[in-house]
């Protein structure tokens, strides 16, 4: 599969080392058609490809990707500027089960960069395409300076209750200080009628799942997005093989009740 060529239409530095790119088709490809939770393979010329989740709205004709500069490929993507080109294959993978949301209470739990694949869910709420009976976002990050999309948080309050918490901050920070499990544990929930979308570092997800199960949320009502080394994105290269699944095509979004036995096996 050869990537389509996209052009960088916008670039925002979220915080040092992490940027958000808006990309539009240059030759081949057609942007905008994806499900929240899916990902693209982004190719930086000569440096490599990396799986990056969709972070924009599914209807505005642009792919939005938030990228943290870490490995060779993400460093190269982070160096790109408006007007420059990159290769795109996708979209791939399973999305968040939006059909589960209508009429139920939606709890979105995001940690760090895990906010990126959940933003399309919030856009879907704002656009009125998905209508839960109520919705809450718990968003944890390391420091206020390392929070994504802070300029939008206020607007999101139209669609859902937003609770932000950071592990470390000065007291000027208006959100909570402390780990995400605390406000999550203090939340009042109609556990039987709640569906949870969870994304963040694996350790953070493990602790959040403990809290949620403790509050009576069923394992089958918790959906999470898994991260593994994805190279080909089409189930051929074997890198993201995980128990009976390929994360790239069977995931990245899984129902916790389906994968809990695998989730608990270390170094799988």
């Amino acid at each position: 599969m050869v990537p389509d060529i996209y052009r960088i239409a916008s670039r925002t530095e979220e915080f040092p080392g992490t940027c958000t790119l808006g990309i539009t088709p240059h030759s081949g490809g057609r942007a905008g058609n994806f499900s929240a939770g899916q990902f693209n393979m982004l190719y930086a010329f000569g440096a490599g490809e990396v799986a990056i989740s969709m972070s924009g709205s599914a209807q505005d004709g642009t792919y939005i990707h938030t990228i943290r500069s870490q490995g060779l490929a993400t460093q190269a993507l982070h160096r790109l500027r408006e007007g420059e080109f990159l290769g795109v294959r996708g979209p791939f993978g399973s999305g968040w089960p939006m059909e589960q949301v209508a009429g139920r209470h939606l709890l979105i739990v995001a940690g760090g960069l895990g906010m990126a694949p959940l933003r399309p869910v919030i856009y879907s709420l704002l656009e009125g395409k998905t209508q839960p009976s109520s919705a809450q976002l718990f968003y944890g990050a390391r420091r206020p300076q390392e929070m994504l999309y802070t300029g939008e948080l206020q607007r999101w309050q139209q669609a859902l209750k937003v609770v932000t918490t950071v592990d470390h901050a000065e007291t000027e920070w208006p959100g909570q200080i402390g780990v995400i499990t605390k406000p999550l544990g203090a939340a009042t929930l109609d556990a039987e009628n709640t569906v949870v979308f969870l994304c963040g570092p694996e350790v953070m997800m493990r602790f959040c799942i403990q809290v949620l199960l403790g509050k009576g949320v069923s394992a089958d009502a918790i959906y999470l997005s898994m991260e593994r080394n994805m190279k080909c994105a089409i189930g051929h290269c074997g890198h993201c093989q995980w128990g009976p699944n390929f994360i790239c095509k069977d995931g990245p979004v899984f129902r916790y009740g389906d994968i809990r036995a695998w989730f608990d096996i270390r170094a799988l």
């Binding site: 010329f45 000569g46 490599g48 490809e49 080909c232 051929h236 290269c237 074997g238 890198h239 093989q241």
Partner: peptide, 25 residues
């Protein structure tokens, strides 16, 4: 069947290639 890919550029920096090769878990 596992494989990986290698991305390289030539010295001019204008040509790049992607190669696939066998990999191992």
């Amino acid at each position: 069947f596992c494989s990986t890919v290698e991305d390289t550029t030539d010295l001019s920096g204008d040509h790049a290639e992607r190669w696939e090769r066998w990999d191992s878990c």
